[in-house]
Amino acid sequence: MKTKSDIENIAINALKLEAEAISELTKNINNEFVNAVHAILDTKGRVIITGIGKSAIIAQKIVATMNSTGTPAIFMHAADAIHGDLGMLQPDDIVIAISKSGNTPEIKVLVPLLKNSSAKIIAMVGNTKSYLAEQADFVLNTTVSREACPLNLAPTTSTTAQLAMGDALAICLLECRSFTDDDFARYHPGGALGKRLYLKVEDLANQNTKPQVDSRSTIKNVLVEITKNRLGAVAVVDHNQVIGIITDGDIRRMLESNEDIEHLTAADIMGKNPKTISYNELAVHALNMMRNNNITQLVVLRNGIYDGIVHLHDLLKEGII
Rank of each mutant, 00 (worst) to 15 (best):
E8Q: 12
N13C: 12
N13P: 00
N13L: 13
L15P: 00
L15I: 13
L15G: 07
L15F: 15
L17F: 03
E18V: 04
E20F: 04
E20L: 06
I22Q: 02
S23Y: 15
E24N: 14
E24M: 04
L25T: 03
L25F: 07
T26N: 13
T26Q: 09
K27Y: 10
K27M: 11
K27H: 13
K27D: 09
N28M: 02
N28W: 00
I29E: 01
N30I: 07
N31C: 07
V34S: 15
N35C: 03
N35V: 00
A36F: 07
V37W: 08
V37K: 12
H38G: 11
A39D: 10
A39G: 09
L41W: 06
D42Q: 15
G45M: 07
V47D: 13
I48F: 14
T50Y: 06
G51N: 03
I52E: 04
S55F: 02
A56L: 04
I58A: 01
I58Q: 02
A59N: 07
K61G: 01
K61C: 01
I62N: 05
V63Y: 14
V63Q: 12
A64M: 05
G70T: 05
G70W: 11
G70V: 05
T71C: 09
T71A: 12
T71E: 13
P72F: 05
A73P: 04
F75N: 00
H77C: 09
H77S: 15
A79F: 08
D80R: 03
D80E: 15
D80M: 06
A81P: 04
I82A: 13
I82V: 14
I82W: 03
D85W: 04
L86A: 10
L86H: 02
L86F: 11
M88T: 15
Q90K: 14
P91S: 07
D92C: 02
D93T: 08
V95T: 06
I96D: 00
A97K: 03
G102C: 07
T104V: 07
T104D: 15
E106F: 12
I107Y: 08
I107K: 03
K108I: 08
V111S: 14
L113M: 11
K115A: 09
N116G: 05
N116C: 10
S117Y: 15
K120R: 11
K120L: 14
K120T: 13
I121F: 06
A123K: 10
A123N: 05
V125F: 04
V125M: 03
V125C: 15
